[in-house]
């Protein structure tokens, strides 16, 4: 069976994973709160529904999706923090939610929204604590710590209490704390959230270098296209708790964007240029340049029409910006859901 051979190789295997939450629905106002003491209405939130995927060793995969899509829940399931309702999952052969120590010694989870360092102490103390918890030999610990601090350029901050670090510096420390035991699998939940462009770039560079060096398997969630463009060969779009697309970034653009953006530079008299202003979907006119959007299939025809009537000096045809494409994908996914493609989302329960 070729299927089982493939699954033998995968470092992460997820099969029909499903997780729902029951959320207390509180109505606004005092009376409603009092009613809520006696009779509560709950809503079923399907955070993850029937997700199946495999990740191979050494892959750098991105989970992409709007807020509340189920990315973080998936990472929490993978790290064994919560139990699923149904489905199976193995990471390096372990079932995450059994929380075996052997498994927990071999992966790490970093959450950009949360802090796991001791707030009032220098990061070095938290590192030391992790050394003892993960039982890392002193020599290995010192070497790894120095290497990582060097790569992220934070050696001089080791003695400073974490609460006095900037967000970017703290995030770097969080990463180091998570990597001290040299995990084989790394889960990153929005590691660059709230960081400035420079810090974001630094962390991207670090992750890229680290992954190339260690060949570790990394699953990342992020809202920043830049992160994903810079790091991940494979992008899994999750929307409404289900996988909407799985492939490379280029494939996403091909699949979800029907348009191209064309920029022309026109030579000759200004009158000739005027005719072009009437084109549909003009984005920007800045004589002698004009930028407009055109359907993928119409590019050739539109261009040959213009070329036959105008003196065109330069042509650029490009894909629309990735952010725009992704926004469209998210909206499409939302629409698909409301059409019932994903099944119903809310069920009343008591």
């Amino acid at each position: 069976m070729p299927e089982s051979i493939i699954s033998q190789m995968s470092i992460i295997e997820i099969k029909n994973l499903t997780k729902s939450y029951r959320v207390y629905q509180k109505q606004e106002g005092m009376m409603a709160s009092i009613r809520g003491l006696f009779r509560r209405e709950y809503r079923e939130v399907h955070a993850v529904r029937d997700i199946s995927l495999n990740v191979e060793p050494g892959e750098f995969v991105a989970f992409l999706g709007p807020n509340g899509a189920g990315k973080t829940t998936t990472l929490k399931l993978l790290s064994g923090v919560i139990n699923p309702d149904s489905g199976a999952c193995q990471v390096m052969g372990y079932v995450p939610w059994e929380r075996e120590n052997e498994y927990r010694r071999r992966f790490a989870l970093v959450m950009g929204q949360k802090n796991q360092l001791w707030w009032d102490l220098p990061a070095a103390e938290s590192f030391r604590l992790n050394q003892h918890i993960y039982a890392v030999p002193v020599v290995d610990f010192n070497r790894t710590r120095d290497e990582l601090c060097d790569m992220l350029d934070v050696t001089h901050l080791l003695g400073q209490p974490v609460r006095e670090l900037s967000l970017g510096e703290r995030m770097k420390m969080e990463l180091i704390a998570a990597l001290l035991h040299s995990p084989d699998v790394l889960f990153l939940d929005e590691p660059t959230i709230g960081l400035d462009v420079v810090a974001q770039h630094k962390i991207q560079q670090f992750l890229k270098a680290y992954q190339e060096d260690r060949k570790s398997t990394i699953v990342l969630t992020s809202h920043y296209m830049k992160d994903i463009q810079a790091l991940c060969q494979r992008v899994i779009i999750i929307a409404q708790g289900a996988i909407y697309h799985d492939g490379s970034l280029d494939e996403i653009v091909d699949r979800f964007s029907g348009d191209k953006i064309v920029t022309l530079q026109i030579g000759g008299p200004d009158e000739a240029f005027e005719g072009l202003r009437a084109l549909p979907n003009v984005i920007e006119v800045e004589p002698p340049r004009i930028k407009f959007r055109v359907g993928r299939d119409d590019v050739a025809k539109t261009l040959s029409d213009i070329l036959s009537t105008h003196a065109v000096e330069d042509i650029v045809v490009e894909d629309p910006p990735l952010e725009e494409v992704i926004a469209k994908v998210f909206t499409d996914a939302q629409d698909a859901k409301s059409l019932g493609e994903f099944g119903t989302s809310a069920a009343e329960a008591r």
């Binding site: 929490k76 790290s79 923090v81 052997e102 790490a108 989870l109 949360k114 796991q116």
Partner: peptide
């Protein structure tokens, strides 16, 4: 934040 405690071996 219990998440982090659950991750530790």
């Amino acid at each position: 934040n219990l998440d982090f405690a659950l991750l530790k071996p």
